[in-house]
Nucleic acid binder design. Structure first.
Length: 632
RNA sequence: GGCGAGGUAGCUCAGUUGGUGAGAGCGCAGGAUUCAUAACCCUGAGGUCUCGGGUUCAAAUCCCGAUCUCGCUACCA
C-alpha cells in the first residue's frame, strides 16, 4: 500500500478503472459488484454463521504470542528467543538457525517480538477450520465421476491432482483488521479468509441485483458457471463447492471452463513490470476498434493451452479475417446491390432458384447451429471461426454467381435480372445473419450493421438467426460504411516498441512492491550499530556451483572466502545456471548459523537484490575485490 | 522431486469410442477475376503427428520410458 491511501481508496480506484475498461470494450454485466459492500458482509457472515451453527467447522485454539505494542498476533518466525538446545539467543519461533533444531515458539526461552522487541504476551487465538478432508469423498464422486466428460481436461486434471494428494482442513478465518469480520462474539479482531468470502460474493452480487436472487442459487435448473483463469481452479472447483455442499441449500457449479494463460509477445503478462496492453490506452490508439481487439482475443483465447498475443498476429487477423473476409464481404454486397438493384433489397424469385441458392440457405442455418453448439460447449474460438466462415461462404457464393457478369447480359436477356436479384437478396440476408451471429463477439459491428440495414436492434435476437427473410424486399438501404480498417505495419511496430520501452523503464525504476501482508511491519525497526556490527559481511568468490537434487530452486555453491572454501546452499536455481555464475563475486553473510537444506549444510548466505517480479540480481562489489574482504 | 495440462504443416489450432493415401485458417507459390477495403475466387507446395520402445491385422489416437513448455506442490532466511 502506498503512503496515505487506505485499502478502501485503492479498491475504489481500481473498481472504477476496471469498470470503465469493461464498459469501453462493450462488456456489460447485470451486476458488477465488490465484496466491500454491506450486503456482502451480511451474506458472507450469514453463510459462515450457518456453517458454524451446523457444526461444520473445527476450531483450533492455540495460545499464540501477541505483540501488545503492535496489536498483532505474531507468526512463529516473528518471535525471537533463546534456543533451548544450543542457547543461541537469536532463535526463531519455528527454528533455530544455529543448531538447525525445529522449534515451536513455546520452547523459546525469553521470547520477544521481532517487530517491536517488546515481550509478547500469550494470548489465546481461535481459528475456524473447514475440514475439506471430510468432503473428499463427496468431491471425488461429484467431480471425478460426475464431471469426467463435461469438464475441460485442464480443469479436471487439476482437480484430480488436488484430490489425489488428499485435502487438509483449511483455516477460514484470519487475524486481521481488513475484511469481513467473523460474526461470532468470541472473534474480535478476526476476519473471514478471503477465499471463504470472495466466492460468496457471487451470491451477494446476485442479491444486490434482484430480489429473485434465490432463483439463481437455489433452483435445481439453474446452471452456475464460473469463467476463470487456471490459477483459480482450486477455489472454484474444490473449496467453494465443498462450502456450498456444507451449507446445503445452494446449487453447485455446473461447469468451470477455466482458461490457461495469455502471454504478450512471448512474455508473461505483468502489471508490475508493465508488460501489458492497457484497455484505456488501446482505446486511445485504436478508436472505434473495440471489436478488433475483442475478435483477436477471442480467436486466440487460451482455451486449451497457454497462448501468445502478438501485435503482428493482431494485424494479420484484423486485416485478413475481419477486413478482407467479413468487412469486404458486407461492403461488396452493399455496393453491388446499389449498382445492380437500385439501392433496394431485391426480391427473391422462387422460379429462378438454383442449387447454389439452396446450398447457401443450408449454410446459413448450419452456421447458426454450429455457433450455438460451440458456445454451449464453451468453445468460443470455434464459434467465432464459424461466424467468419459464414462470411467466407458468402464470398464464394457471390463469386460463383458473378452477378456483375450477369449484369452485362441484361440488354439481350432482361429476365436475367432475376438471377441478380436472387443473388443479392441472399447476400443481404446472409449479412443480416452475420450481424446476429457476430453479436455476442462483435457487438459494435453488429450495431453498425443494424444501422446500415436500417433494422431495429431486436432483429439481432438470437431466435432470428437462420432466417432468410430478415430484410424486407424493396427496402431502400444507405451506402455502406467500412466495417474494419486495416492495421498498418507502422502501428504494429509502434505498439511493440511502446510495450518494450515502458517495460524497460519500469525495470530500471524500481517498482513498488505490493506485498499484502497487513500483519507485518512494512519497514523493519531501527537497530543499534552494535546489532549491525554483529553481522559479518564478506566478499566471496564462487568457485563451483551445482544443482541440488530433488529441489528446483536450490544451488549448492562453493565460495572462496579467502581463508577457506565454504559450502552455501542458495535458492537461486531458477534464475541462474550453475555454469554461468562460477567466478562471480558475491557478498556473503559469513557468520550466519549453519542450516541444513535438503540434507546439505549451508554455511552462510549470499546477498541478492530482488525486484517486484522476484527476479534476482547479485549484490557484488563494482571492482574485483579479494575474497574475504570485509563489507561494512 | 511429486502431480496436472500441453508438444500435429512456417504460424494459430481441429483431429469423436485406434481403421479409407493426416485436416482447417493464416502465411507462401502459381493462376483466374475486377462487384469489392490491391480485397474476393481457384490450384499447389509443406508434416517420419517431440523422440525411443511396446500392444495390435491396423496408432497422431492405447501402454511404458525419455525430453521440452506452462501450471500446482515441496525445497529457497
Amino acid at each position: 500500500m502506498k503512503e496515505g491511501i487506505t485499502p478502501h481508496e485503492v479498491v475504489d480506484r481500481y473498481h472504477a478503472l476496471i469498470s470503465s475498461s469493461f464498459e469501453q470494450m462493450g462488456i456489460s454485466f447485470d451486476i458488477y459488484s465488490r465484496t466491500s459492500n454491506a450486503v456482502h458482509h451480511e451474506t458472507s457472515q450469514a453463510f459462515f454463521k450457518k456453517l458454524y451453527d451446523d457444526g461444520a467447522f473445527e476450531t483450533k485454539e492455540s495460545e499464540q504470542y501477541f505483540d501488545e505494542e503492535k496489536q498483532v498476533f505474531l507468526a512463529d518466525r516473528y518471535i525471537v528467543g533463546t534456543c533451548p538446545v544450543c542457547s543461541n539467543d537469536k532463535a526463531y519461533g519455528d527454528q533455530c538457525e544455529k543448531c538447525g533444531s525445529t522449534l515451536s515458539p513455546d520452547q523459546l526461552i525469553n521470547p520477544h517480538s521481532a517487530l517491536s522487541q517488546s515481550k509478547p504476551i500469550k494470548k489465546s487465538t481461535k481459528h475456524w477450520y473447514f475440514p475439506l478432508n471430510k468432503y473428499e469423498d463427496f468431491l471425488k464422486q461429484w467431480i471425478l465421476e460426475g464431471k469426467k466428460d463435461s469438464w475441460k481436461a485442464n480443469v479436471y486434471g487439476q482437480c484430480k491432482s488436488w484430490l489425489d494428494a488428499g485435502l487438509q482442513p483449511r483455516a477460514m478465518t484470519r487475524d486481521s483488521n481488513w475484511g469481513v469480520p467473523v460474526p461470532l462474539t468470541d472473534a474480535a479482531g478476526k476476519v473471514l479468509y478471503v477465499w471463504f468470502d470472495a466466492p460468496i460474493g457471487y451470491i451477494s452480487a446476485t442479491k444486490e441485483l434482484t430480489n429473485q436472487w434465490s432463483d439463481y442459487w437455489q433452483q435445481e435448473d439453474t446452471k452456475l458457471v464460473h469463467f476463470i483463469g487456471k490459477d483459480n481452479i482450486v477455489f472454484h472447483c474444490i473449496i467453494f463447492p465443498a462450502m456450498l455442499k456444507a451449507h446445503g441449500s445452494y446449487i453447485l457449479p455446473e461447469n468451470v471452463p477455466a482458461n490457461e494463460f495469455l502471454n504478450i509477445e512471448g512474455e508473461k503478462v505483468s502489471t508490475s513490470r508493465n508488460w501489458a496492453v492497457w484497455v484505456h490506452e488501446y482505446a486511445e490508439d485504436f478508436p472505434e476498434m473495440q471489436d478488433a481487439l475483442r475478435y483477436v482475443l477471442c480467436a486466440n483465447a487460451p482455451e486449451t493451452k497457454d497462448n501468445d498475443f502478438t501485435w503482428k498476429d493482431f494485424q494479420d487477423r484484423v486485416n485478413n479475417e475481419l477486413a478482407a473476409i467479413l468487412g469486404n464481404y458486407v461492403n461488396r454486397a452493399f455496393v453491388l446491390m446499389h449498382k445492380l438493384c437500385a439501392g433496394r433489397v431485391p426480391s427473391f424469385h422462387q422460379e429462378a432458384k438454383d442449387a447454389l441458392d439452396s446450398q447457401l440457405e443450408q449454410d446459413i442455418n448450419a452456421a447458426k447451429q454450429k455457433v450455438e453448439h460451440s458456445i454451449e460447449e464453451y468453445r468460443f474460438r470455434d464459434a467465432l471461426f464459424e461466424v467468419i466462415d459464414l462470411a467466407r461462404k458468402g464470398n464464394k457464393y457471390m463469386q460463383d454467381k458473378e452477378p456483375w457478369i450477369v449484369a452485362k447480359t441484361l440488354t439481350g436477356h432482361p429476365e436475367n435480372q432475376k438471377l441478380i436479384d436472387n443473388c443479392l437478396h441472399h447476400c443481404l440476408q446472409l449479412t443480416a445473419n452475420l450481424a446476429i451471429l457476430m453479436q455476442p463477439f462483435l457487438p459494435f459491428t453488429a450495431a453498425k450493421l443494424c444501422k446500415m440495414m436500417k433494422v431495429v436492434p431486436r432483429m439481432l435476437d438470437w431466435e432470428n438467426a437462420g432466417r432468410i427473410d430478415l430484410l424486407k424486399p424493396n427496402y431502400p438501404l444507405p451506402a455502406p460504411e467500412i466495417l474494419f480498417r486495416k492495421i498498418e505495419d507502422v502501428e504494429v511496430a509502434t505498439q511493440v516498441q511502446k510495450l518494450k520501452d515502458r517495460s524497460l523503464l519500469n525495470n530500471t525504476a524500481t517498482p513498488k512492491t505490493a506485498k499484502a501482508a497487513p500483519t507485518v511491519a512494512a519497514a523493519k525497526d531501527t537497530i543499534a550499530f552494535d546489532d549491525f556490527a554483529k553481522v559479518d559481511l564478506r566478499i566471496g568468490h564462487i568457485t563451483a556451483a551445482e544443482k541440488v537434487e530433488k529441489a528446483d530452486k536450490l544451488l549448492k555453491l562453493q565460495i572462496d572466502m579467502g581463508t577457506e572454501i565454504r559450502t552455501i546452499v542458495s535458492g537461486i536455481a531458477l534464475h541462474f545456471k550453475p555454469e554461468d555464475i562460477i567466478g562471480k563475486q558475491v557478498v556473503v553473510v559469513a557468520n550466519l548459523a549453519p542450516r541444513k537444506m535438503r540434507g546439505i549444510e549451508s554455511n552462510g548466505m549470499i546477498l541478492m537484490a530482488e525486484n517486484a517480479e522476484g527476479n534476482l540480481v547479485f549484490v557484488a562489489p563494482e571492482a574485483m575485490t579479494p575474497a574475504g574482504s570485509e563489507v561494512r
